[in-house]
């Protein structure tokens, strides 16, 4: 993986320095309300989150606490109700003009913003009518306009990276869950994202296949990719995460370094959650 590598020479101009220190993701007081009137559900209730460049943030929390919604808001699959989310310094979904008036961005621009963020879903969502190779080639060809040959070469590289080079011509239905999820990771990486979002990537897997997917993710983290991972794999959080966030009922209840959060939880709800998961 070349695009995400942090070992490029560090520029020392003030602007570059400021940019390097600025978090990759900056969420401020994010609210999300589904529906309206009597049916309104307040799912995110003022979430603040910073994700440093090249870091891995693991999001924990009970079911229904809003973890998926938060990830979906970061890449604009859901429109936030209030607050702001910046990714790589860009305000997601909106533009503020000189007078401070907010404008919704055109869907084309939003699609472009999204293309820089990779997402991996719990249920893989590979395109079933395309082979593994075609799945990985699809976005580079259709979104970035790469030639077929170029996209193919790169896709084979990525499939090799997730250990599936010899499965390139298989359809998703012919692959195991773990293999499908690894193809899905390769598909997201094909767009050279600067940020990767994982929504419970191993929850739909046969337990014996969880390891192979986590290994790929760990490898990706080592390469310096900025990642937000929603998972219940405490072992992964402990080993790979730089930052652990615990969400409950639409807010971040506790966050910090893995050792502090996982071994010395101060919040009773987190203690309770960890007691169940471990």
């Amino acid at each position: 993986m070349s695009g995400s590598s942090p070992v490029e020479p560090v520029e020392t101009t003030p602007a570059a320095l400021r940019q390097a220190q600025e978090p990759m993701v900056q969420a401020r007081d994010v609210h999300k309300v589904f529906g309206r009137g009597h049916d309104a559900v307040h799912v995110l209730k003022g979430v603040d989150l910073d994700v440093a460049r090249g870091s891995v943030t693991v999001v924990l929390g009970p079911s229904g606490s809003g973890k998926s919604t938060l990830l979906r808001c970061v890449n604009e699959l859901e429109e936030i109700t209030a607050g702001s989310i910046h990714v790589d310094g860009d305000l997601m979904g909106y533009r503020r003009d000189d007078k401070g008036v907010l404008h919704r961005l055109h869907p084309k621009v939003i699609a472009k913003q999204r293309s820089r963020i990779g997402m991996v879903f719990q249920r893989f969502h590979l395109f079933p009518h395309k082979t593994a190779l075609e799945n990985v080639m699809e976005a580079p060809v259709q979104v970035r306009g790469l030639t077929k040959g170029e996209a193919r070469r790169r896709a084979l590289e990525l499939l090799d990276r997730v250990g599936l080079a010899e499965r390139a011509e298989f359809y998703p239905a012919q692959l195991s869950g773990g293999q499908q999820q690894r193809v899905a990771i390769a598909r997201a990486l094909a767009m050279d994202p600067e940020l990767m979002l994982f929504d419970e990537p191993t929850s739909a897997l046969d337990p014996e296949l969880v390891g192979e997917v986590l290994a790929v993710m760990q490898d990706l983290a080592r390469s310096g990719m900025t990642m937000i991972v929603v998972t219940h794999e405490i072992g992964f959080a402990r080993e790979v995460a730089d930052h652990v966030v615990f969400m409950d009922d639409g807010t971040i209840v506790e966050e910090g370094r893995p050792a502090d959060v996982l071994d010395n939880p101060s919040e009773p709800r987190l203690q309770d959650f960890l007691a169940h998961v471990l």
Partner: peptide, 25 residues
């Protein structure tokens, strides 16, 4: 619907999603 969503997350626009992902299926 996860299919359109996955395509959207890759940065594909609605027309392409319809033609390349949803319609063929």
């Amino acid at each position: 619907p996860g299919q359109a969503e996955a395509a959207k997350a890759l940065g594909m626009k609605d027309g392409k999603i319809l033609r390349r992902i949803v319609l063929p299926q």
